[in-house]
Design a protein around this nucleic acid. Sequence first.
DNA 1: CTACAATCCCCCATTTGGGGGGTATCTGAT
DNA 2: ATCAGATACCCCCCAAATGGGGGATTGTAG
Lengths: 211, 211
Amino acid sequence: MNPINIRIALVEDDERFRTNLKKYFDLTDPFEVIFTADSVESGLIQLEAHDDLDIVLLDIGLPGMSGLEGIPLFKKVKPELDVVILTSYEEEQKILKALCSGATSYISKRTRLEEIASALHIVHSGGSFMSPSIAREIVTYFAKGQNKEKKKILTSRQTEIMELMIEGNTYSSIAQALLISAETVKSHIKQIYTNLHVNNKAQAIAKYMAN
Amino acid sequence: MNPINIRIALVEDDERFRTNLKKYFDLTDPFEVIFTADSVESGLIQLEAHDDLDIVLLDIGLPGMSGLEGIPLFKKVKPELDVVILTSYEEEQKILKALCSGATSYISKRTRLEEIASALHIVHSGGSFMSPSIAREIVTYFAKGQNKEKKKILTSRQTEIMELMIEGNTYSSIAQALLISAETVKSHIKQIYTNLHVNNKAQAIAKYMAN
DNA sequence: CTACAATCCCCCATTTGGGGGGTATCTGAT
DNA sequence: ATCAGATACCCCCCAAATGGGGGATTGTAG
């Protein structure tokens, strides 16, 4: 067997698209289509019989069990399997759910076959590929999360020290990082405790991280 | 002006890399380098004078203010500006922070220039590009999040002690609350640190609260 | 002028973390 | 039935870190 063979499976209910993909990958090195399925259920059964699989290309809009529900099941049978979502659903909710369930990549069906192949190469070498529109949804998600502005009870210097404290630094290592004296760090931390109405590191971190 | 012109700015302290990028983009259509800067501070000043900017390419490891801190400032001056991080820092923490601050894309410095250009095209047309290794960090982050319920790294006793520790109790006050010896509390906490792969209270609390 | 952030210093008791050592149950796998 | 492993429990030593109490000087913004 070719050492750089990439063994894939296709789980897709649209027969035309599925056979198209299979044809393409059958003709394209170094891909090897181990099996195809038109549902999660059938895919799972076939997966049991083929433990040499690298990547499963999974659609979301499947009859019966959805691809979204299927992800954890595939990962359960073979945890090191890379699940690549190939679908036309691009809503944030579906994307996030897929990623949370353990999908490695999320590719739009509009993507050209060569680009899908390139994505699979990336995945096989330990990376991850996101279609531009999908990636945009993800960054939007993160940016939204930040909009919750938190209380400005700490000065910028105090925040800086707080962050370093959370990383487990001692007063002196914080001092070194900020090029100030450990005594100064201590003074700042005293002040932090006063501002947060606490009197030790544990409570301070808890309070700081809670908001 | 060419309607498909992409007006970019480079904020990067490594002079060689910066001039390289500038040369490349100066020669490559449809890019136009509006200005370059070697620090966030200088970049912000120049941004005020150029309101026709589309994208800023920003390094993270800058002297003075870090790129991470700079992102919100750039977005504040010009909210519709797309901030593209181009850096060699690939730690999850930095990546997430950048995305939360409003970065649109995050590209590894190891990326070929043509690919960077292609990423900028994607960003300019409303998408987002992530380097494979970066994207992988992001999906890992999501996958971890899902395991939060399954995060039973701590036994029930350890959890109990952890909660009391977060409230700021000392070993002896935890001992009193649980009617055991302080030495036992200490043993438990040692074990907690082992399980969480940390070695002090601060990191333990941060890790415990993060999930 | 005043308040406040940021910097620095000393003293000293308490807490912590890391290194040992141990016993008693309970559970799951052989 | 037994036995390894996990869990909970207890103890000692000692260096390092922390926290609380004093104090001080700058610079800056209101």
